[in-house]
Design a protein around this nucleic acid. Structure first.
Lengths: 243, 243
DNA sequence: GATCATACGGTCATCCTACAACATAGCAAG
DNA sequence: CTTGCTATGTTGTAGGATGACCGTATGATC
């Protein structure tokens, strides 16, 4: 391959780097919505890559609805409200405040997920949830797989709501959180915390099995809040919900 | 351009069509997670396009974490849980049941959004919400812009939560719904329904201004449920939340 | 026979050039 | 002033060439 001088860092693949660079420029407000991007050739020159690479990068951004390309005219950046995809910046989650906000969102989704699941879950759903619970409290208790089982538990509940979008959103948020705090759980595997974690899951399961929506929701909310603090994230500004 | 025989429909751009086709194959379970995709050349032949087009399509899917390409080996489909992006199929929303589920998710998010906003909103936030409300009830009352103002109102509330992820998720869900039921609002602009709609918004605003989380949440839930039925979507299986 | 270094083929990654499709601006003819 | 053509620039697509990387088969060595 010819040696070309690139103005951006290394490691990742070229199209991804270009896409990230453009994405940051757009998110950062350097390019305002409605404005036209430089031509593909200009971008290729600017980044020191071929036009093909630029096109692949733009293809990604276009799929997200971040920019719109019109043949013969150019590429334009779209308003952030009409994105066709949700993407969470892994880098941003290193900021504690962002992580807190994501946990707050998770708390909302999971609480309602448990509430709905308690009212709707079938015996098959309960079996799946129980299976995940057993994996968590069983032999994999302190192993790496317990994290996997934990996610399985929450996903099984989300599936029991019968709402595929709730399942998708919760899976997504949980996965983002997991990948960002993976280290925290590994460096802090205090056994008593694990016990607490398992106990909270049992309480949730009991409420689900009893088909008690309110109890399930409250147990889940306490669990998520507890899980957050266990990984060093404090959910601030708790509010009175009038319950 | 050379005439090539394509096995897929028309209208959209080639890379997008290929991406959608592959995406459906993966979502539909035709290709199980972990399996390898055909090589880029094979896909190019299969779809009757150039390899460049296939690469752009794959770039999109890869950005979503749907597939992973390893140089020198091939492209593999990933488990649906570890997607890096959420994308909602516009086609699927034509199915009434899916629309119901999406409305249920919106109800959850917006209810909690209003609850949080009531506790946290500043006077600036209230001003922004009021501005949207005025646009909705004012001269644009029965014009096309009222839909825009409606979205503005809900987004302003989401912003008042101070949680950027809640804002992102609500904006996204609302936008998906708007684009899918746009026709419904236009073909059914009954004035009394509009009046009801405005009245509900006023009730939400009053609760926010009074910093009453519980009232705001309940008003918002009623509003979303009402809005759903107004566009022909019935939220079934309402459950007892024990409130 | 077992083990390790090497060669080879397949695949993705990147690059390049060329051309088609499309949009816009400007100019010329009516 | 309107209409239509042309010139130019931009994105869309095609196709081929080469480099980088991986897995495996081959063969040499012990």
């Amino acid at each position: 391959m010819k040696q070309r001088s690139s103005i951006i860092g290394s490691v990742e693949a070229l199209p991804h780097r270009v896409a990230s660079h453009l994405s940051r420029e757009i998110e950062g407000g350097d390019i305002i919505p409605g404005a036209r991007l430089p031509t593909e050739s200009q971008l290729a020159d600017k980044f020191g890559v071929s036009r093909n690479v630029v096109r692949e990068a733009i293809a990604q951004l276009r799929a997200d609805g971040m920019i719109e390309a019109r043949q013969g005219v150019g590429a334009f950046v779209m308003a952030p409200e009409q994105r066709t995809a949700i993407r969470i910046d892994r880098e941003a989650l290193k900021d504690q405040r962002n992580m807190e906000q994501l946990f707050e969102l998770r708390s909302i989704l999971e609480t309602e997920s448990a509430t709905l699941a308690a009212a709707r879950c079938t015996s098959d759903d309960l079996d799946a949830i129980k299976a995940a619970l057993d994996r968590m409290g069983g032999e994999e208790r302190w192993e790496d797989g317990s994290i996997e089982a934990d996610l399985l538990f929450h996903r099984a509940i989300a599936r029991a709501t019968g709402n595929s979008y709730i399942y998708t959103f919760i899976s997504f948020v949980c996965e983002q959180i997991r990948q960002s705090i993976h280290y925290a759980r590994l460096t802090n595997p205090l056994h008593d915390l694990v016990e607490v974690n398992v106990a909270e899951h049992v309480r949730i399961y009991d409420a689900l099995a009893a088909h008690d929506p309110q109890a399930a929701g409250e147990a889940m909310r306490r669990h998520i809040d507890g899980a957050a603090s266990r990984v060093g994230v404090e959910l601030t500004a708790k509010i009175n919900r009038g319950k």
